[in-house]
C-alpha cells in the first residue's frame, strides 16, 4: 500500500519579471531568514547577495526565478539561493568573475562581490540553458 507521507518541499520560488517582483521576493526572503534563525547581519548579507544575483536576471535575461531553501552540511545550517534565467547566458564566465575595480562605480555583473559575501558560490551558464547562479550562506 501507499505509505509515504509527502516530504515537505521547503524550496521557495519567486518569479522575477520586474524590480517590484524582486523587491517583494527579497522582503519575503528577509522575513524567512529571520524566522529561520539568521541574525540581522546575516540577513543583510543574504538579502544583499540575493539582490545582486536577482538584479542580474532583470538586467541580462529580463525574467527568471529567484529560489531559496534551507540547507545543511554537517553541523552547519543555512540557506541556498539560486537565480535562474533562460537568458542569453554569460559569454565569458572567467571574465565575469574578475574583479574589475572601476572608478566609474560600475562593477559589471557584481559577481566577484557576491562571492565575497557568501560561503559558497557557483555559476553555470550557456546560451542553451541560460544562467544559474547559486550560493550558500551558513548561519553564524
Amino acid at each position: 500500500m501507499l505509505r509515504t507521507t509527502p516530504a515537505r518541499d521547503q524550496s521557495h520560488v519567486h518569479r522575477i519579471k520586474s524590480e517590484l517582483d524582486l523587491s517583494v521576493a527579497l522582503a519575503q526572503l528577509r522575513k524567512w531568514s529571520m524566522v529561520n534563525g539568521f541574525d540581522a547581519p546575516g540577513a543583510t548579507r543574504l538579502v544583499t547577495a540575493a539582490s545582486e544575483i536577482g538584479r542580474n536576471i532583470l538586467k541580462y535575461a529580463g525574467k527568471g526565478e529567484l529560489r531559496y531553501r534551507p540547507v545543511a552540511e554537517g553541523r552547519k545550517t543555512g540557506v541556498e539561493v539560486a537565480a535562474v534565467d533562460q537568458g542569453p547566458g554569460i559569454a565569458d564566465i572567467e571574465l565575469a568573475m574578475q574583479d574589475r575595480s572601476s572608478s566609474s562605480g560600475t562593477l559589471g555583473l557584481g559577481l566577484p562581490g557576491v562571492k565575497r559575501l557568501v560561503d559558497r558560490f557557483d555559476i553555470n551558464s550557456s546560451p542553451e540553458s541560460g544562467t544559474h547562479v547559486t550560493f550558500r550562506l551558513w548561519k553564524r
Binding site: 540581522a40 547581519p41 543583510t44 544583499t48 574583479d99 572601476s102 562605480g105 566577484p112 562581490g113
Partner: peptide, 17 residues
C-alpha cells in the same frame, strides 16, 4: 549605515569615493 551594510558595501567592492 549599519555595521552590516558597511561590511557588505566593502565586500561588494563598491567605491564610495
Amino acid at each position: 549605515l549599519s555595521p552590516a551594510i558597511a561590511q557588505t558595501i566593502v565586500d561588494l567592492g563598491i567605491e564610495t569615493g
